[in-house]
Every structure is written in C-alpha cells, then in structure tokens.
Design a protein around this nucleic acid. Sequence first.
DNA 1: ACCTGAACACCGTTCAAGT
DNA 2: ACCTGAACACCGTTCAAGT
Lengths: 216, 216
Amino acid sequence: MPESNNVRPSGGRHSKEDVAATALLILDQFGLPDLTMRRLASALDVQPGALYWHYPNKQALIAELADRILAPAVLFTDESQGWEGRTQAAAARLRDALLAYRDGAEVVTSTLAIGLGATDLIELFAASIRNGGFDPRTARRASTALVHLVLGHVGQEQQRLQYDGLGVVVDGARPEDARRETEQDDSFAFGVALLIRGLTALEADLTSADRFVWDR
Amino acid sequence: MPESNNVRPSGGRHSKEDVAATALLILDQFGLPDLTMRRLASALDVQPGALYWHYPNKQALIAELADRILAPAVLFTDESQGWEGRTQAAAARLRDALLAYRDGAEVVTSTLAIGLGATDLIELFAASIRNGGFDPRTARRASTALVHLVLGHVGQEQQRLQYDGLGVVVDGARPEDARRETEQDDSFAFGVALLIRGLTALEADLTSADRFVWDR
DNA sequence: ACCTGAACACCGTTCAAGT
DNA sequence: ACCTGAACACCGTTCAAGT
C-alpha cells in the first residue's frame, strides 16, 4: 500500500496555492530541515518533478512561505499612541507572526539572505519611524536594525523551543518554562526599547544643535 | 589523472588542524554552499568517511570554523576611551572578523542557531557594557541585541558582495561600489550607535528617578 | 592513530513524453 | 495546464576492515 497522508483535490490537479499551503503544513509540523521537495511531493501525492511546474526552484517556494508567514504582520495597521508605541507594536506583531510557524524566523532570514522580500519588512517599521519626524534615511537604517534584532531574537527563541521539544512533558507544565518565556519576552522588549530610546535621544541631540553625536 | 589540488602532508596523515584549515580555505574561495564533506575530503586527498574520525559531524566542523573566524575579534582587548568607545570598537572588530571570510556571518549564525559558541560572542560586548556601570542582566540583554544587529548587518553585506561578484569587473573599480561601501559602513555604525545611545539614555532615565520608561 | 571501500538513505533539478 | 517516469549529479553518515 502506498503511504499517503496526501491531500489531492477531487479534480486530481494542484495549484500554486495547494503546494504552498501543504508546504506550510509540513514546515509547521516537522520543521525546515524536513521540508524537502520530495517529501512535499509525496504529501501532495505527486512526483517530485511536478513541483517545478508550480515553482522554478525550492528557494522560490521558501520565499512564498516567507511572504505568507509575514502577511499578518505586514497587512495589519494599528492606531497606538505615538510613533514609539506604533514601532514597538510593529515589532511585537512581527515577532508574533514569526512565532506562529515552526522555524518561521529561519524561513524569513534565509529568504532575506538571498535578497528577496526585504522591502516590505523594512517598510513595516520605516513608516512609523518617519511618522516620528525622522528623515527617510534615518528611518530606513533604524528599521533595518530593528528587523535584524527581531529576526535574531526570534531565531534564538525558536531554537530553544526545539531543544525543549526534545524533553518529554508528561502531563503538566514545567515551572522553568514559564519563567524562561517571560525572560524571553522581557529581553525582546528590552532590545526593541533600546533602539527606540536611542532614536528619541538622537532626536533630542539634534534639536539641541549638537549634530554629530552619533556620527562616528 | 585524479584531480587533486590536495594538501596532503608528507607523513600521509591529517590532523584536526589540517582539516579545519583546508575547510576554511574552501569556504573562503567558494562559499558555504560549496563546502561539502565530499569536496573537503577530496581537497585533502582522502575518502569522505575519513573526516568523521576528526569531527563527529558537519555541524561540529562548522562550529570549529566559526570559532576560528571569531578568534581575532574575541581575543583582542583594547583601551579605547570610555565604555561606549570600547563597545563600538568591539562591534567593529566583530564585523571585521566576519568580513574576513566569505560567508563568515552565515557560518557564525548557523552555529548560533544550533546552540553553540554563543557565550563568547555575548561576553565580547557584555564586559565593556558592564564596565559602563550597567548590571549584568542589562549588559547581557544589550549584548545579545548587539550580536543580532552585527550578524544581521554583515549577513546582508556579504549577500550583496555575492551579487556584485556575479558582475564582471574588467580592470577598474565601478564608482557605485565605493558609494555603497561607505553607505554600508555608515548604516552599520548608525545601528550600533543607536543601541549604545539607547543605553546611555536609559542610564540617564534611571538616575533621574523615572525608573520605568523602558519597562513596558 | 588514521584511513579505505563500500554501502545506505537520501537530496534538488531536468526533461521528454503523456493526458 | 498539470503531471509521470526516469534519470543526472550530487549529498551526509556509518562501519567493518586495513595499516
């Protein structure tokens, strides 16, 4: 009997949509290393080569997954109080979106590492920072820093989740887990707050006419 | 004729040292994706299986490379003026160390992503920050943020170097290159400065008795 | 102590040909 | 428009056996 937890539509043929959705399922259940073209093909009950009709290569598929993972963070617009609040909220939204899928940060980082989809991500922060009265160049630089901060932090966070997953939880929560989670939350918020605080301080520096404090 | 740009010692046998050094050579010349166990073995004029006598697996080898790449940044101690200067200098040193090898940032990031060698890197910054009078917890958090910032930035930088490598430079420098380089330098220094400025601002906040500006 | 030979269990990608 | 069949050119890792 052919092993098939497959999800083949009644028509018998797949769309780009099917492929991406199934890939996201495998990613979330088994992690990025187990998301292979061959495994994806067999989940779709299809030969490996068939995937290359939908996507030119694996990187393009991963980029599509990155887009879908980021969608909730990018689409959303909020009305928090002040540009600092909106920027912090955007960081939290990005973090939540990455945490929503197993290895989410690695998927996005690897897509960024081949030069795809960076603009949306940076604009996520740049808008709220410009809104604080900063020039576009400053906003772009600070946004880039924020993106690196969030991706790095969530990457580490998800790595620990993997470690913890190896331990067996019988029927209760281990008390260390909760403590570690809040420590992660605090550490994340602290890093983001540092950057934002640096920006406001920079603003103050500039308006007090000492224009080159941060410039080398 | 067997293709062999090999570097086999006169004795006929290799050491961990040989293996790591040759791996670093391949990394620097051809990049991380081309650094395979089989390719490394053939450069050493050895069967692939032989490598597993020296290192238990590929991840361990990569971790060793990460250590060697980071060594110049970690060992060095300087006597810059003030903790801000020392922290900024540490960031510049880390960046230089990563830029010294092709895909250096990716090597270190991937090692960090499997939970190895993180402590040295964080301590690189934590020492100078504690030196500024911050408590260990704050220093650790700020250091972590700085590490993520630097790794993310250099990762992007090295990705662009790869792109540029695809274009053919005939016999002169293209004017855009220099402009882009200084833009990268500035952007890097700006991100680091933002974080440090955030720390000093935080310090000021605390000493002026308003203790919860950054705490949610 | 260090390596060979040979295998195991996989990968991503291509492409003529089918429906 | 979407897929099969079959191949190409690889991977990392293991392990008995050799020197």
